[in-house]
Design a protein around this nucleic acid. Structure first.
Lengths: 225, 225
DNA sequence: GAAATTCTGGACCACCCAGTCAAGATAGTG
DNA sequence: CACTATCTTGACTGGGTGGTCCAGAATTTC
């Protein structure tokens, strides 16, 4: 999967050229970095809103380097979504599973504390960079909506993975007796996903840091026992 | 305000023509209905996504009837947003202030019950018509984002009014002793707004009716005493 | 050196966009 | 009837869109 991720040409293993008398010129730009720059552009302006010119300018590659490497705009966007999912899910699992002892302050990181830290992190990112507005997947869910089933499936899968990550953390909290008695981790996980992505909209709608924190506080108050 | 809402020409009172020897032909389409159809189009496809052709086709008026009556695309969109705000806020206040006695089932409608009914109504609409995806204002908040300050201000004001409506209902519930002791209606109102618009995204992201109802249940569970 | 491949840059395409204009039909008044 | 203003229809403009193609320079091997 990894070797077919970019265009066919650049995915050819070195051995492919062994029967030739000459080696081709190698790629000069880093496809991953270019993809990250495209990600940033799509994040800020949306799929339709990011024009080819915008993308090329921001990715700092030439027109057919893009077409050679990533295919057309839609393929590029799908690759961007895949990369976003990989990065975001990795980051989420990273903060959500960080239990044990925190070194600087020396106190136990329970699953509940990890969840709160997760929301704090989200808050910091969202407030810091309002232009991008929460989450590329949420933006995409609203922008392309039901018009493109394939993209919608990607978005759907992503939200499923987010719910699963939160659900796993809640299950751990549940087993440790941190949750209110009678809690259902599945329902709570869905509630947290809802709260999380509500925050993105509220931020874009102009809510300030204090208001967002209030929302997090109330939203998480259903967990504590 | 009402008489200047549409274009100047059609806002002229009948007396304006009295010095003329002839009366002009009257408008054949209903501007309000046309506006509602434009609203539907923008709701489904977004501002950029709804092309002039789409709008004209759906509004069933000619090209310059549109330009004569509503101005350019952006003006039309602003009028649509104003109409949406009027309709939505009216409807919200309608269901949120419906306290007293419900006739068919003969039981007291407390503020809390009214709030729950409000969310149920939202759920029904969202599930029924997933294409439009929750709320035009939420869609707009994400799509145009910080690119257009004027539109952003409209969106911001709208969310403020929603929060106020919920806050008023929560204040009434608070005075009636329906809320959990120590509750802050302001924080709860913000939480409810967050929950509400989160539902819109979750719906577009593929959440089913059952999952959405779970989110509502958990989200509202912070209110009950 | 030759060969192979990528790079850059610009030219080009057909298409869609929002917006404008003109012409003629239509309807309401006197 | 004449007059007025709106209606509908269609053509048109200027510009942006995604996408393709080509020529020449650059780079890496044999």
């Amino acid at each position: 999967m990894v070797q077919n991720f970019y265009a066919q040409e650049s995915a050819r293993p070195r051995a492919y050229y062994q029967h030739l008398q000459a080696m081709p010129r190698v790629k000069e730009f880093d496809p991953e970095e270019a993809l990250d720059r495209a990600l940033d552009m799509f994040w800020r302006r949306g799929y339709e809103g990011a024009s080819l010119r915008d993308l090329l300018e921001h990715m700092e590659i030439s027109r057919q380097s893009l077409y050679d490497t990533f295919g057309d705009k839609r393929s590029l966007f799908l690759k961007v979504l895949a990369r976003y999912e990989a990065l975001a899910v990795e980051g989420m699992l990273d903060t959500l599973t960080r239990t044990g002892w925190s070194r600087p302050i020396e106190r136990p990181l329970t699953a509940l504390v990890a969840i709160r830290g997760f929301f704090e992190l989200f808050l910091a990112e969202v407030v810091l960079d309002r232009e991008r507005g929460s989450c590329l997947m949420a933006n995409t869910a609203i922008e392309v909506g039901p018009a493109d089933p394939e993209i919608q499936a990607v978005v759907r899968a992503y939200f499923g993975r987010v719910e699963e990550a939160l659900h796993a953390a809640l299950e751990r909290a549940h087993e440790a007796g941190e949750l209110r008695p009678g809690s259902e981790p599945r329902a709570l996980a869905r509630h947290l996903v809802n709260t999380l992505y509500g925050l993105g909209i509220m931020s874009r709608a102009g809510a300030g840091r204090a208001a967002l924190r209030q929302m997090i506080d109330v939203g998480l108050s259903v967990l504590a026992s």
